[in-house]
Design a protein around this nucleic acid. Structure first.
Lengths: 220, 220
DNA sequence: GATCGATGTCGCCGCTCGGCGACATTCGAC
DNA sequence: GTCGAATGTCGCCGAGCGGCGACATCGATC
């Protein structure tokens, strides 16, 4: 994924194997930094996320992060902007709602899709965990970007379906989303949640079954 | 929150040289350390939780933490053991189940009780956030203690009621607990969750209403 | 060829961290 | 009284952190 850390160090001899010197390519460097930051966040979490770590991972000097992104905050903003692509990757065009007859059909499908998407996306998971653990400027920016991406995704998937009368869909859906996020986070961190094991796919089937039951219970 | 036997500590500030002589009381020092650790965790979260910070807050030398608790891990164990008291504080003896006719009644009540308890307990909130953010030895120990306390609480409150047939109560309840935990964490961190504001008591009423609806939907 | 801005690199600063060795003070047993 | 252990204190170490000034190198332009 990331370019190997340029063996330009003249330890033994002049590298004849490299006819062309590594180009000074600001765009590539910026990309390397951004990718390193995303990868670092996804792999290590926000605990060890800092200027030095990103620079190490990107194989560049940390000064460049200051120059190109204005420091960690700017870099986090860039990650947030990059999060917009999350939506496009996760909209199945073909099942755009024409087979979803009821709001319950829709929410059942969305719940399972969101669950799966979160399980498959370590970066998103780390960001969610970050959101509930800190309240710094960086987190706020990232959180806003994620929130917007999620809202856009829900909006696009919803189509023209409307929730049944008498149900506060915003509140209910917030709770459903909260449940999904926390279940995935718990599983990712400790392999279980409130006594429910969440490791084998059999475990996840039980969770999905329960989730469907809950959605159907409230939305019919 | 915690009884402070020493009137010398000003509010959340490093204790200066007291005119009053400080007695050599190992028990009191141990208590001060434990209280400082709990308070620090509750107030600052796990980000800045370390030997130096605890010692500073306790107004003692960090060496004593090593001596008395065997380091941070032992101190965390002590916090975990202390968590057992959580159960006793939150069992209303009078409404021990005799007015709860159905499992749905029970779970509705438990959900709201748990929600309120979490909202009122910053330490517990921080621990939950810690659980989903890290997977270190310390977190594992603390998490286990919390899990056991929660399970005990649920067990005692459940009484003799049994869930309806055909419902995977373990899975469903895990999702409900996950939802509550994440809602409270999100609110605590950012004042909202998935587009649902969670600041004013009016907001919380909406959330509670939605939660009740969900519980009733699945448990009747 | 000389110049100058863009790009990349190096090393220092002050700080906090966890850990620990060494010392100071007090108290109880004898 | 004496002495040893319990209790409390001090300061150092190596490491990592964010931040930044100064330098090195390259490419385009004149």
């Amino acid at each position: 994924m990331l370019n190997d850390p340029m063996p330009l160090t003249p330890i033994a001899s002049a590298p004849q194997a490299e006819p062309e010197k590594r180009v000074r390519d600001r765009g590539a460097t910026e990309k390397a930094i951004l990718n390193a930051a995303k990868a670092l966040l996804a792999e290590e979490g926000f605990q060890n996320f800092g200027i030095n770590a990103v620079a190490r991972k990107a194989g560049c000097d940390k000064q460049l992060i200051y120059r190109y992104y204005g420091g960690l905050n700017g870099l986090v903003d860039a990650i947030g902007a990059d999060l917009g692509t999350w939506v496009k990757d996760r909209i199945p065009e073909d099942t755009g709602g024409m087979f979803l007859l009821t709001y319950g059909d829709l929410m059942e499908r969305l719940s399972l899709l969101f669950l799966q998407a979160l399980r498959d996306d370590p970066l998103m998971r780390r960001i969610v965990a970050w959101e509930v653990s800190e309240n710094t400027e960086q987190v706020r920016r990232l959180s806003e970007a994620r929130s917007k991406a999620l809202a856009t995704w829900l909006e696009r998937m919803r189509g023209s379906l409307t929730p049944p009368k008498g149900v506060d869909a915003v509140a209910v859906n917030a709770i459903l989303i909260a449940a999904i996020q926390h279940i995935v986070l718990s599983a990712s961190a400790g392999g279980q949640c409130a006594g429910l094991a969440l490791k084998a796919s059999k475990d996840w089937e039980k969770a999905e079954q329960a989730l469907k039951r809950i959605v159907r219970g409230v939305y019919g």
